[in-house]
Design a protein around this nucleic acid. Structure first.
Length: 565
RNA sequence: CGGGGUGUAGCGCAGCCUGGUAGCGCACCACAAUGGGGUUGUGGUGGUCGGAAGUUCAAAUCUUCUCACCCCGACCA
């Protein structure tokens, strides 16, 4: 491609609303432009990357025996009503009506549509198992789209759905998909990790997420040598050591204006781990108090799974707390509470701890279970932390940030049952099909790849998804007929051997060419200059190389062919 | 949804408090010099100052309403 016939619109300055590096670089390199909140246009450069990723995904899915289809983005409400999700899904589902006032939605996912298709198309167990996928635009009306393409409202997703006679067959396909995803992310050149995951509102049981590792990731994952899971899923093993004996009496102390654990622990000169915090949430009947150690944090997903607690977790308002308990937030504690109190395992073995007195400006010290308040009802509601024992009992956990780019689920019969998707088995009996589903955030992968591969100068594309493989930069071509001829010759030869070249035939100064080339992140760079030509040489530099090297003019094509592998 | 903030040229911003001909840098166009790391000079193109209503002789500036976008949002108990 000649730049003169392409669109390279790079920016020197960072647009003010871009926070994370991938968003900044995608705007600066001219890959995307924003249309409205969470809606982006892909410019030619960005689209090339997106399509490369798409093609790798497609290739691996095909290899795994999945069949590509394409379903409508707009879906009739009836199918969602049939599965029950028209009510459940909430405001993230973009609902629209047509001219006859028939209700539709713009699909955030396609379980209903595929299940409807398969229940009509597949009648016999002999046709199973099947696995269909599509690469298609989804819309989810996020509360707060951010980070550019990373969390957009409209995005490109690969979604696959498999249908089976039984769980064993599903398990087999699930494992094939796990392996396929591993192959895909390896081919994309990304550092990633598969983790045990919560299945959220898609439904089903067994589930893994695939995370690209990056500090800017919105998810936290915990892992050891033999275990990896999304933090929201990780159980904390109960403490093994027994609770110490009380050594002091319970005392009420004045703690004016001490609201946070940090303030309180400094004010009383004690460790936050000796303080206890009490969070009030909506319960299924009345309010419920959740009690955690001061240095621990609440795991909302685990808390939401407790039978006494509303799911998803809703925190009580300041007014509710005032009404029911009679004090402001910042002075709450489990002693003498009239509502249900659920206590994290790690608080259960504290002695002589500090907590709010349920009176403004007062806290209690020297509090002990079984003496000052009843023995606690113990639950597991805190987030794991680095250094905690792995749930499989094998070593200690480490914590990392990740960007969720893939998610595989075993759905079971959630949709097939609701929508009566059955086949006849060998003995002529109707069997509800068992389903799996498998998603990859194709557009998100573009941003994730940049988060993991960039430097001060710009993007560093993994070779397999780079928009171009080689940049050809002639220095001051307009001034030298000889140089022009050599450049045109190399360009034609590289094209002839099937290499994607970006030929900078603009009348720009070298500095601009170098800067653009590095910002755009093209992995290999050839520079042609008068000086080199005098010696029959051109210059090569890989995007990650410290220094350039010279290559004899006659060997350039062979050299590039070797180096790009 | 709640809180905070921002809307002035494609991008980054100043001007607003104290009303009086709409500015700067980058980008873009032309010419010239320069020519291996975002060069320099000269001259240009481009804006209903987010929108509406109001106050005023006069509104980017003051008032009210409205829209869009950005950030934060319950571990503070």
């Amino acid at each position: 491609m000649r730049i003169s016939q392409f669109l390279i619109s790079t920016l020197k300055e960072v647009p003010a609303d871009a926070e994370i590096i991938s968003h900044q670089l995608m705007l600066r390199s001219g890959m995307i432009r924003k249309l409205a909140s969470g809606l982006y246009t892909w410019l030619p450069l960005g689209l090339r990357v997106l399509q490369k990723i798409e093609n790798i995904v497609r290739d691996e899915m095909n290899k795994a025996g999945a069949l590509e289809i394409l379903m409508p983005a707009v879906q009739p409400a009836e199918l969602w009503q049939e599965s029950g999700r028209w009510e459940q899904y909430g405001p993230e589902l973009l609902r629209i009506s047509d001219r006859h006032n028939r209700e539709f939605c713009f699909g955030p996912t396609h379980e209903e549509i595929i299940t409807n298709l398969i229940r009509h198309e597949v009648r016999s167990y002999k046709q199973l198992p099947v696995n269909f996928y599509q690469i298609q635009t989804k819309f989810r009306d996020e509360i707060r789209p951010r980070f550019g393409i990373m969390r957009a409202r409209e995005f490109l997703m690969k979604d696959a759905y498999s249908f089976h006679l039984d769980q064993d067959s599903l398990q087999a396909t699930y494992e094939v998909m796990y392996k396929t995803y591993t192959n895909i992310f390896n081919r994309l050149g990304l550092k990633f990790r598969a983790v045990i995951a919560d299945s959220g509102n898609i439904g089903g049981n067994n589930s893994h997420e695939f995370h690209v590792l990056a500090d800017s990731g919105e998810d936290t994952i915990a892992y050891s040598d033999t275990y990896a899971a999304n933090v929201e899923m990780v159980p904390v093993l109960p403490p093994t050591e027994p609770r110490p004996q009380p050594t002091t009496d319970m005392t009420t102390v004045d703690t004016p204006n001490q609201h946070t654990i940090e303030e309180l622990s400094q004010f009383l000169s004690i460790s936050p781990s000796k303080c206890v915090k009490t969070l009030i949430v909506q319960g299924t009947e009345s309010l419920v108090a959740l009690v955690l150690r001061g240095d621990h944090t609440l795991n909302i997903v685990k808390a939401g799974k407790l039978s006494q607690v509303c799911s998803p977790v809703i925190f009580a308002t300041t007014e509710q707390i005032k009404d029911v308990i009679g004090c402001g937030i910042g002075s709450l504690g489990p002693v003498g509470l009239k509502i249900s109190v659920l206590v994290d395992n790690n608080v259960g073995n504290l002695a002589d701890f500090v907590c709010g007195a349920n009176q403004d400006g007062k806290h209690l010290t020297g509090v002990n279970w079984g003496r000052d308040l009843p023995e606690p009802q113990l639950v597991d509601i805190r987030n794991v932390e680095a250094g905690d024992v792995s749930p499989d009992g094998n070593g200690k956990l480490e914590i990392a940030r990740g960007i969720e780019v893939g998610h595989i689920f075993q759905l079971g019969t959630k949709y097939s049952q609701a929508m009566q998707a059955t086949v006849l088995n060998e003995s002529g009996k109707n069997i509800t099909m068992t389903m799996g589903c498998y998603g990859i955030g194709v557009s998100r992968l573009v941003a994730a790849a940049i988060e993991q591969n960039h430097d001060q100068r710009g993007i560093i594309w993994p070779t397999t998804i780079a928009p171009f493989t080689v940049a050809l930069l002639p220095m001051n071509m307009h001034k030298s007929q000889r140089l022009r001829q050599v450049a045109e010759d190399i360009y034609a030869k590289l094209l002839a051997v099937g290499i994607e070249v970006l030929f900078d035939d603009r009348k720009e100064r070298p500095g601009i060419m170098f800067a653009d080339c590095e910002l755009i992140g093209i992995p290999h760079r050839l520079v042609i200059g008068e000086r080199g030509l005098d010696n029959g040489e051109v210059e090569y530099k890989g995007r990650l190389d410290e220094k350039a090297q010279t290559v004899p003019l006659e060997n350039v094509i062979e050299f590039i062919q070797k180096v790009i592998i």
